[in-house]
Measured scan of single mutants.
Amino acid sequence: MATGGRRGAAAAPLLVAVAALLLGAAGHLYPGEVCPGMDIRNNLTRLHELENCSVIEGHLQILLMFKTRPEDFRDLSFPKLIMITDYLLLFRVYGLESLKDLFPNLTVIRGSRLFFNYALVIFEMVHLKELGLYNLMNITRGSVRIEKNNELCYLATIDWSRILDSVEDNYIVLNKDDNEECGDICPGTAKGKTNCPATVINGQFVERCWTHSHCQKVCPTICKSHGCTAEGLCCHSECLGNCSQPDDPTKCVACRNFYLDGRCVETCPPPYYHFQDWRCVNFSFCQDLHHKCKNSRRQGCHQYVIHNNKCIPECPSGYTMNSSNLLCTPCLGPCPKVCHLLEGEKTIDSVTSAQELRGCTVINGSLIINIRGGNNLAAELEANLGLIEEISGYLKIRRSYALVSLSFFRKLRLIRGETLEIGNYSFYALDNQNLRQLWDWSKHNLTITQGKLFFHYNPKLCLSEIHKMEEVSGTKGRQERNDIALKTNGDQASCENELLKFSYIRTSFDKI
């Protein structure tokens, strides 16, 4: 039985969820670079991206490699990797027998973001014989899940209580170790020597080791999670996991709180800001991140802002960003909400898709409305799209047979046209069989910064309504002859009103 693990408890099935942008060198404390989270699957090609990484700022997932063999891993080693800020997950990587050479110096898994409450997941690794993470000293947050690894031993010899604050939620089941077939031998045991430290858990006094050649490092209890030197002297209180010299914040392997210019500090002093819960960055760093993602459509890219001495992905609820200094300031009234469309555009074809934009005031991208039916549609669209004030790209209304009016965009005031449909149009209306009105132009103002209007096959939309939009939106004169079809717009509506004058002759039985 794995020490510190839980057996036999019912657990939810383990679901495996399925960018080499360097964020800056980590400095003297770390020998390499800070790398983003990685999802490495199918083959070993991307694994080489770990070569210079000291910190993975995010998670590391290595999974679904069915053609790899043990010899493929023999020359692979990433000794610079010290810390993973989120979680480490391995799933069905064939041929991998140990992690001792792959990650010989991995010391800390912070667990800032977890995989279903777990910071370390080893699942269905069919050839893994031992973990071998002999320098792993601290899992700051989260638990361990090690399950269905039929060859995995050296679990009962690990004292997880020396690595985690609590072992109650560890789930370590259905491994070879369960069948008591392992016969784990710690260093020196074969020669009758006791080389590794022994600890007591559940009444068992057991030597602690990761492999037959690597003991588990056990520091004096007084050192807590700070770690200790090879001689057993406690590291500085700002260290986490390990250090090369005692009581020196510049000799830590990793930091308990924050890293700044080669030393570990309790908090980031001005003019620095907390970033990702582990390091200090200056304003320029946060500003660069903001600008890199301002026009990016890459998933996970955030326009970072500053709030409460932190550089964070977005302002919290009730705050909006001051564009001059990136500071989050309290909103006066309802907060603006910028919604970034991942692929640059979004099609609204149902109430469900409209709900995804609920509360958005600025759309960074283009909207395509293609709704053919739905219950209580006008009210639903207004509830979900009615706060949109600005669209950076274009607005396209296409084959939306259920629409009679666009009044559900009740606050839309600006279409920038930074991206144009077919390279020309910022407003595009095609084949809307029941569209009769755009907006009530006596109450609604709309500016279209650039781009043209396109109207074709809107049989109940009168040309007068379209011409009014040209005047109000500032697009009059931009359109070419064929942009607004004269014969297919309003051709099934009563669009022309003329005053009919009647004269009559009164007659009676005795007068003409």
Rank of each mutant, 00 (worst) to 15 (best):
C234T: 03
F103R: 01
G32T: 12
T194I: 12
V108N: 15
I122Y: 00
L99A: 04
I201V: 14
C153H: 04
Q204T: 04
L233E: 15
H291Y: 15
D75Q: 11
E97P: 06
C311F: 04
V34I: 03
N135T: 10
T250W: 09
N325E: 11
E71W: 02
G188V: 08
Y171I: 13
R279L: 11
E124V: 02
Q299W: 03
V218P: 07
I163V: 11
D86W: 02
E51D: 00
V55W: 02
F275W: 13
A190L: 10
D165T: 08
L60W: 00
G241V: 04
H226L: 09
N117Y: 07
F73R: 04
K191T: 14
L99V: 08
C239Y: 00
D261E: 02
I109G: 00
C215A: 08
A156Q: 12
Y134H: 01
V55M: 03
Q204M: 09
C153K: 06
D184M: 15
M137P: 01
C228A: 02
L50C: 02
L99W: 01
K191G: 12
H48N: 15
G32F: 09
P197H: 09
C209V: 03
Y171V: 15
S225T: 09
Q276G: 05
E238T: 12
I158V: 08
C215F: 13
E97S: 05
S112M: 13
P249K: 03
G58N: 00
H127F: 05
T107I: 15
C234N: 02
C219R: 04
T329Q: 15
L326E: 14
L106D: 00
V144T: 04
W160M: 09
I158N: 05
G227W: 10
V173G: 03
E71F: 12
G142M: 01
C35E: 00
R46A: 10
Q216M: 14
Y118M: 14
N257E: 09
H214F: 14
H236F: 02
D101S: 14
I201S: 10
G227K: 06
M137E: 11
V305F: 09
E33F: 01
K67P: 06
F115A: 14
M38R: 04
Y94P: 14
L44H: 07
G203C: 06
N117A: 11
S54E: 07
R113F: 06
P70D: 14
D86F: 00
V305L: 08
T250F: 10
S77Y: 13
K176D: 13
R162M: 09
E124S: 10
G203T: 07
L240T: 15
L164Q: 04
R41Y: 00
I222E: 13
C328W: 02
L89A: 01
F66N: 01
G95H: 15
N175Y: 05
N325K: 03
T250H: 08
C228F: 04
P316F: 04
I146L: 13
I62H: 01
Q204A: 08
A190C: 06
G142P: 00
P79E: 08
N105H: 03
F103L: 04
I201D: 10
F116N: 15
G132M: 01
P246L: 11
S296E: 15
L88K: 00
C315L: 04
C243E: 00
H127S: 15
P269R: 00
K191P: 08
V218K: 12
L128M: 09
N138E: 02
H28F: 13
K217E: 15
C153V: 01
N257I: 01
L128P: 01
K217H: 10
L327K: 15
T189N: 08
C223L: 02
C280S: 00
L128W: 01
K193V: 04
R113I: 14
C235T: 00
L155K: 10
Y30V: 05
D261I: 04
P313N: 03
I158E: 04
C196P: 13
H226P: 07
G241Q: 04
P249Q: 08
K310P: 02
G262A: 05
T329Y: 12
H212F: 12
M137Q: 13
K310L: 11
N309V: 04
M38K: 12
L332S: 01
Y87C: 00
N138S: 14
L47W: 03
D159S: 09
G300N: 07
A198L: 09
Q216K: 03
A198I: 11
N202Y: 12
S244N: 06
A254S: 04
L88C: 01
P334K: 14
C286D: 01
P197V: 05
Q299V: 07
D159M: 04
L29M: 08
L96C: 10
S213M: 12
P79G: 05
L63S: 13
C311Q: 02
